[in-house]
Every structure is written in C-alpha cells, then in structure tokens.
Amino acid sequence: MTGKVVTITSGKGGVGKTTTVANIAVALAADGKKVVCIDGDIGLRNLDVIMGLENRIVYDIVDVVEGRCRTRQAMIRDKRMPELFLIPAAQTRDKNAVSPSDMIRLCDELRQEMDWILIDSPAGIERGFRNSIAAADKVLIVTNPEMSAVRDADRVIGLLEAEEKAAPSLIVNRLNPTMVKRGDMLGVDDVYDLLRIEVIGIVPEDENVIVASNRGAPLAIEAKSRAGQAFRNIARRLNGEQVPFLDLEAHSLWDRIARLAGRK
C-alpha cells in the first residue's frame, strides 16, 4: 500500500486550515480509508483539540523524530473512527525540533500502511511550512474570500512553484453567498481570477463549524450540515471522483422565498 501525502497550508493564519484537515480526514475515514493526520504546528498545536483527542496524548511527533517512541505509539486512534489516527505536535518545543528530512522519513514510513497522510501546516512561510511541504505529493491551499488571505495564498503558490512541487489546489473557505451577491465579498471567480489554480472545494460559512470544533467532533460526520457536505465533497474529489460543486446560491433565504413565490 502506498499512501498519499496531502499538505494543507495557507500562508495566512486563521483561515481554517486545521478545521479543514480534521473534516477531510473524518470524511476520508468515513469512506473506509486508513487516514493519519499530522499536526505540523509544533509549539502551537490545535488539531488534537479540534478532533477532541487532547487528553489522550502521550507521545508526539518530536518523540517519534527523536526516537523516544515508535511511530505507532504516537498515533492516537480516533474515538469514533477506527481507521483514523492523529500524530500530535509537541507543545513544549518549537518548529526547529523537526527538519524537512525528518518529515520525509516519517511520511515514507506511514505510506506503507496508510491510504492518506494529511499534514496540517502552521501559518507562515518559514521552517514549519517547509517541514510540512517537504513530503507532500499534493498541496491544498486554504483561503478565505478576503484580499489579505488571497494575497498570502498567492505568495505560498509562488513558493511551491519555486520548489517545483506539483500544482496545488484551492479551497475557498467561509464563503458567504449572500454577501457575495451583494458585492460585499469576493466571489470564487474573483479569487480564481488572481490565483489561477484548480478549485477543489468551496465551503460555505457555517456557525456549526465553530460549535463542532469546540466540541471536538468535526462536522463532516453530520449529514445535514452544508459545510460538512462541502468537506465530504472535497474528500471525494481527492479520491478522484467528479463531484459537482454545491449550489450555494439557492440556499440563501431570499432565494428560497423568491423561488417559492415564483412557483405559486
């Protein structure tokens, strides 16, 4: 078995990288795949909290790299999904505790027994970012429909091009269709217009994402949530399926009213 290494990064902080990793991981695992997430944000770990596994951490990635435990021992099994694992970051160390070649070695080992290895990159373009992309077969860039996030995404794409990595794909997170319609928010077209890379996911803004994160139970398991559906679609696209994008427009309140009115 040779697993694929996918790194999720963004440049700018706070755009939803960690949430995206947790949700895609859950969606892939729900589909019966063996998945391991690696938290690359050494010193500022979050992925364990969002996945609700914080209290089960015994060993972390630095322990693996420095040989204090076997890789298996640092892999925390998810509460809900038997084939979903997390390798947490160390909270008491910094980015320099791990090197790009450590990451390549670790991922090569994980590839043997896993289908998907998802790496949650820290914000920024320094050491932590370089560690995170070192082993990547595929890079997903998360951005929000805001000018500053899109600029940072452009910078990161430029860095990936310079490293001669395969072309990354784009996830536009936290899109508010009503605001886009009013002209108050960048649309997916505007974002694509600048970045010009394949769009693999469009995730609508959804309060439930925050609720789910606080509860440590990623949304993608919940059938009803629109954002959860969008994350599940990204997972299917990663698997090579052709999945149409959600029709976000039709679900704004006014559209629904207009539709009802039109039907009568």
Partner: peptide
C-alpha cells in the same frame, strides 16, 4: 514567460518582457 506571484522580484538592467500576469506583491 510565467505569472509573477506575490513575493517575486525581477530585476534586470535592460528591458523586461513578461508573458503572464504580475500579481499584487
């Protein structure tokens, strides 16, 4: 012959011809 993304800097003492976009930054 490529798009110059944010953070790229191109300097040349003569003329420069760019076949692609020059993005902000």
């Amino acid at each position: 012959s490529k798009t110059l993304r944010s953070g790229t800097r191109i300097e040349f003492a003569g003329h420069i011809v760019i076949f692609g976009d020059v993005n902000p930054g």
